[in-house]
């Protein structure tokens, strides 16, 4: 089992300096039987096999031509014992489930699923008042995807957790103040009725 991560970001095994390539673009997995599997990581400009754009996980034959952005990957060479083309040795393979020829989209094998970064909620919280906490939530939310993409899974989950916590503080205080003022005016109304 060997996994080669490919993209423009520094966290990859093969770094492709091409502006059309996403930071985390795709990965190619060789299973224990020697079969190859290509997984597109939801890249912006797509991963092309023999000229056709492919999504999710697909089986690769050793003669297939893989192109990302404007770059054709000499991907067969990544699985020879020689160091990969970027000069970096491939990282130790992480445990990855074997790749069936046609399986539902399950990007990145057994990596933890990407945490919900809570950006929508934190932006909504800043709009609907309770300013300071919403801002803190946004700062943490903005870090989640980058940390996850660079392989810092624990930190990504921690940032997502903090974004969530600060959002709930903002939401809670907002809700309490709304209900509180409503009851206050209701009490005044009833007192004068």
């Amino acid at each position: 089992m060997k996994v080669v991560k490919i993209g423009r970001g520094s966290g990859n095994d093969v770094i492709v300096q091409d502006p059309m390539v996403s930071k985390v673009h795709c990965q190619i997995i060789q299973d224990d039987n020697g079969g190859f599997c290509l997984v597109d990581a939801d890249s912006t400009n797509g991963t092309y096999v023999n000229g056709t754009r492919r999504h999710g996980e697909i089986h690769l034959n050793s003669t297939d031509i893989v192109k990302i952005g404007n770059t054709t990957l000499p991907w067969q060479s990544y699985f020879k014992d020689a160091p990969v083309s970027s000069g970096m040795p491939p990282r130790p393979a992480s445990p990855v489930a074997p790749c069936p020829a046609a399986s539902p989209v399950r990007p990145f094998g057994q990596q933890p699923p990407k945490p919900d970064n809570f950006l929508v909620w934190s932006i909504l919280a800043t709009i609907f008042c309770c300013v300071p906490f919403g801002i803190v939530s946004i700062v943490y939310a903005s870090k989640v995807d980058g940390l996850y993409a660079s392989g810092h899974y624990a930190e990504a989950f921690e940032a997502a957790g903090k974004a969530k916590t600060w959002f709930w503080w903002a939401f809670g205080i907002g809700a309490v103040s709304i209900v509180g003022t409503f009851i206050y005016y209701l009490a005044i109304g009833l007192a004068f009725a």
Binding site: I127, C129, C130, V131, I173, G174, S177, T181, F182, Y185
Partner: peptide, 22 residues
């Protein structure tokens, strides 16, 4: 109307938050 939500930041500090007037 008095029934719509009030901004807690404005009530507490008297300052206008970026969303006041929304």
């Amino acid at each position: 109307t008095v029934w719509l939500p009030k901004c807690p930041f404005h009530l507490l500090t008297g300052l206008e938050c970026p969303s006041c007037g929304f």
